[in-house]
Amino acid sequence: MSGPIRPPWAGPLGLYHPGTTVIHRAPAGLKLAFLAMFAIAVVAVRGPASALAFLGIALLAQLVARIPWHRTTRGLVPALVTAALIGAYQWWARGWATALEVSVDLVALVLLGAVVTATTRADTLLDALARLARPLRHVGLSPDVVALSVGLFLRTIPVLARMSLETRDAARARGLDREPRAILVPAAVRMVAHARATGDALAARGLGEN
């Protein structure tokens, strides 16, 4: 791909880490179903021993998928901080067993979730979502409209990011950058104007009809 590298939020490939392992190749629906079952099991089975077993499963998945640690740590750091804080609190309030169970359960679930995210392309997941959304056509949401909304969403984030910077510069130029209203109000009005212009453009292109 030529041109600048996509910022992480600009592309559908956000948190995906390419690979060919068995976990990468497994169908997205299967992975999601397994994750859901895992989450139910983690909550349902009590005790510190099972918590450690669940963490073992999640770590094994991470190893099998061959995801480098720095890929998963980004999503994991807040969870680890939370786990440490709640672990310390629970130890003081209810003893070491509860502390271990709660904090390890949390890390295990977040870790396995991160593995599923890192091994499944976001566009594959979006395709799966589009299939799931197909019955919505009975309530007037056609798959095309869903696909259009997703594309538009991805396209609009960089537009809004630029717009908010411009609005802040405009406020700064008038010496109003300490005034939240001078930034929020023009930014929101510009955003709504942009959305309405986009709606007109979609209609002009004959999209969202028939």
Partner: peptide, 25 residues
Amino acid sequence: LYVVLGLAGLPIFSGGVGGVAVLAG
């Protein structure tokens, strides 16, 4: 739409995270 796309793996939740892992948090 925001919640579903974030759960699908776009890094659009607070702190630039995304994916179903957030459901566990």
